Simulated scan of single mutants.
Amino acid sequence: MPRLQLELRGRTAANVGFATGYALVFRGRPNWFSARGLGYGLAAASVVAAGYGAAVAIPAIRERIGGFADRAPDVPLDEWVAVHIPIGTVYSEELIFRATLNPLLDDEFGAGGGALIGAVTFGLWHIYPARAAGDSVPASIAATAAGGVLFDLLRRRAGSATAPALLHFAVNAGGALAPYLAVAGSPSS
């Protein structure tokens, strides 16, 4: 994908096309319309939202978070949060990993092996974004692999990719909105 040198909107469209095709070919099982998935996902997302709210409310943490406000993409924040995060990132990654790859790995290696291999693969998937953002690659791999473990546990518990998708959205959207809110809410603004 990086070699295509697409701008953000093109990458979002390419991610959606690839994820959808991948899930169709490998018989992904997202079970998007699961009440159980919705319930677990909303509960997990609310914990993350509360955490971001608390972080922005605490002056020392708010100041630190505000330092990330300059890392916004080259599209308006509302477009980033309403389109690119939920569709280009969350839908695509949850469809690829939790709805398709992890169940395939479970079938081949059992639940434990599938979860571990899926989480490591999810971590490695984030090498290029970490490099592009100037973040530590090993730390990004570790953090996203840990997230992959949590997302997969949610998928297993809820029987749906909806639960990890809602948590994934809360983490990413909160990470985009918190710096903006931190700067807007600081006494010097």
Rank of each mutant, 00 (worst) to 15 (best):
A184Q: 15
S160L: 04
F151R: 12
A49W: 13
G17S: 05
A132G: 06
P103V: 05
R9L: 13
P138V: 13
P76C: 08
G88H: 00
I96N: 11
T89W: 07
G134L: 06
P129K: 02
A173G: 02
D74V: 01
T20A: 10
T20E: 12
P2E: 15
S160P: 07
G53V: 12
A57H: 11
Y128R: 08
L154E: 04
A158D: 11
T12L: 11
S92A: 15
T121I: 11
G175M: 07
S186C: 03
V48Q: 12
A19P: 03
S46H: 00
W32K: 05
G88T: 07
G123T: 07
A146Y: 04
F97T: 10
R98C: 13
A178P: 10
G21M: 12
W125P: 00
T100R: 05
A111L: 05
F97C: 09
P2R: 15
A43L: 15
V83E: 09
A111Y: 07
Y128N: 07
A13G: 00
D107W: 02
A13T: 11
A133V: 00
A23W: 00
A54V: 15
D107Y: 00
A111G: 03
G51L: 06
H84D: 09
A165D: 06
L181I: 14
G134T: 00
V47Y: 08
G118P: 09
A45Y: 07
R11M: 14
A132Y: 04
L181Y: 14
D152W: 13
A69M: 01
